[in-house]
Design a protein around this nucleic acid. Structure first.
Lengths: 334, 334
DNA sequence: GAGTATTACGTAAACGTTTACGTTACGCAT
DNA sequence: ATGCGTAACGTAAACGTTTACGTAATACTC
């Protein structure tokens, strides 16, 4: 139905080669033919077929993005960074979810392979051996954002969760907190769970505070997990004066349950979050949190992938500096 | 580099037609050849090339999604609905942002055209005449989610903003509020601004309350807009006992500024939001809001588009019922 | 045992491009 | 006049599939 290059060639009385040349303006034709071809092209409502193009050029100008199926503001920022950058460089992004707990990860990668994406960005999903194999077998540049593997050769871009957690807890200690809980990290998650928990523990130890495992309420990174953690603290009658959360949403869960129980933040209890996602501005009180520069990570990660595609260069792993954003959810204990 | 159907054919000693047949299992071959072909296929690490496939089949099994470049939880839910459904039906989604105020809308559509997406979903971006033309000129099924045009023939799926707003304000009135502010809608936005404002006004009028234009603080749908609206109410010394917000984020802005000024929600002032996005659960207090079923809208919208692709049927516009979700941000005036 | 269906393939064109290579015509220097 | 360079094209193959059509062999019918 849609007009093709052949149609233009026929109507304009030139060869398809010439049409292709003027459309991609490669030169090698005079002005008259250019005008003519352009005119016919408009007239027929021609629109180039990227698929056909990709076929011969062996590159699709497309980058794939795989992310978990949870929808949090967290991912929105990263995605935006990715999309902005890819747009700038003339790439399209094709998006897929990895399913809960990465259940769809293999299909996702397979799909990306069949679509012949030029590069791949994987956000926040934990990759096991077989997934890594699928990934490398694609033979295209890729980067992991906010996740990593235990293999040296898979490039990633993330903050150092251990020291970010350490920073947050240290901050609480410096504000005279001595009974500090932790909420929301899954200790079996080697990427974002375990290191944050270790950072928490180490900070306590370095300041001579004994780690009390009862003060660690593990769970997921979501709001509900924060709520039930706080519920547990209350039921335990734990004397926590502060809690460090594995994500901003967890922190909001803590705050929410506090509110329900008429515990005031930060007067009765201090809270620090993790991510500096949009919700951290919006909470009451505004949340003190350790910042991951999500948008920039998306941007830079995407840039790295595109650079690797174009220069056939290797992508180096990169640890992004974190930063503590101080707002109003922490109070000094007197 | 990657193995093709031809490689398989050569190694397996059959024709490409046969390889194609077994790979797409269309029948017409005996078990032995099937085994053979499959074996060789695995051996060579064959992966089909969707682009080549698309070229001859004249369909890409791809659906395009265009959304604004603002990143809110709002879009996350819709996207998830879309991606889940398209995955179920074997479609891939290619995503693009329309840029601020739709500045990239033409490029976006053009891109979708060049990629030959089979269907298109446009979320929340306002479409002017020329954009509608680009859209229809693609000649593919499409649907607008959470937006519409003034033309009858562009199918959309959205809640009735007018009556949703009416419902919300009526709820406030029934709780004895008489001085009700409105925050965050842009009156020049004919899709989501004007109707919500009209619903607000009409509800007041129907209950014999005079509309006071000073109580309408227009703006965007974001957090900051809510903050400055509340700031304005305070500076005006307006005696509002409640404010109806054009989005949940605006509502959180209101609450945030209230908090800073030691105005208590809902004791001093009641707030109702709009969207029922994830943040509405997380606020303190939890937000009473009018719900748009975002995930379902994404799901259903995507389903409609796929159905239209496959049956060549027409998509009907659909008004989604709204619902008031009562939480804790509204108090009865005594 | 002649005719007919059916099974199991193979051949080759087609999808819409790009691009290496060839060709023509002209301009210009010698 | 000869040679050469170059601008402005055209020819045709190639990219990796699908699929209409043809064909050979076998099975079945009466």
């Amino acid at each position: 139905m849609a007009a093709t290059i052949k149609d233009i060639a026929r109507v304009a009385g030139v060869s398809t080669a010439t049409v292709s040349r003027v459309i991609n303006n490669l030169g090698g034709y005079n002005e008259e033919t250019e005008k003519k071809v352009m005119a016919v092209s408009k007239e027929l409502g021609y629109r180039k077929n990227e698929n056909a193009r990709s076929l011969v050029q062996k590159s699709t100008n497309t980058i794939g993005v795989i992310m978990p199926d949870v929808t949090t503001a967290f991912y929105g920022d990263i995605i935006k960074g990715i999309e902005d950058t890819s747009y700038e460089y003339g790439y399209s992004v094709i998006l897929t979810h990895a399913g809960s707990h990465g259940s769809r990860i293999h299909e996702s990668m397979n799909l990306m392979g069949e679509r012949r994406v030029d590069g791949l960005i994987i956000v926040s999903v934990e990759l096991h051996e077989s997934a890594i194999q699928s990934l490398t077998s694609l033979g295209i540049p890729y980067i992991l954002i906010s996740t990593k593997t235990d293999r040296e050769d898979t490039p990633y871009m993330k903050v150092d969760d251990y020291s970010a957690a350490y920073t947050a807890v240290k901050y609480l200690i410096e504000h005279n907190h001595r009974t500090i809980g932790m909420a929301g990290a899954n200790p079996h998650d080697p990427i974002a769970g375990e290191p944050r928990m270790n950072g928490y523990k180490q900070a306590l130890q370095d300041y001579g505070i004994k780690v009390d495992l009862n003060l660690i309420k593990s769970g997921g990174f979501n709001f509900e997990s924060g709520k039930s953690a706080m519920q547990a603290f209350i039921e335990d009658e734990a004397a926590v004066t502060a809690v460090f959360c594995a994500s901003d949403e967890v922190a909001l869960g803590i705050i929410s349950t506090c509110y329900e129980n008429e515990i005031h933040v930060p007067n009765d209890i201090s809270v620090v979050g993790y991510d500096n996602s949009k919700v951290s501005h919006m909470s009451v009180p505004p949340l003190t949190t350790v910042a991951q520069p999500l948008y920039d990570m998306g941007r830079e990660g995407c840039f790295e992938v595109i650079a690797a595609i174009q220069n056939k260069s290797k992508i180096e792993s990169k640890v992004i500096p974190h930063e503590l954003v101080v707002r109003k959810s922490v109070k000094t204990v007197v």
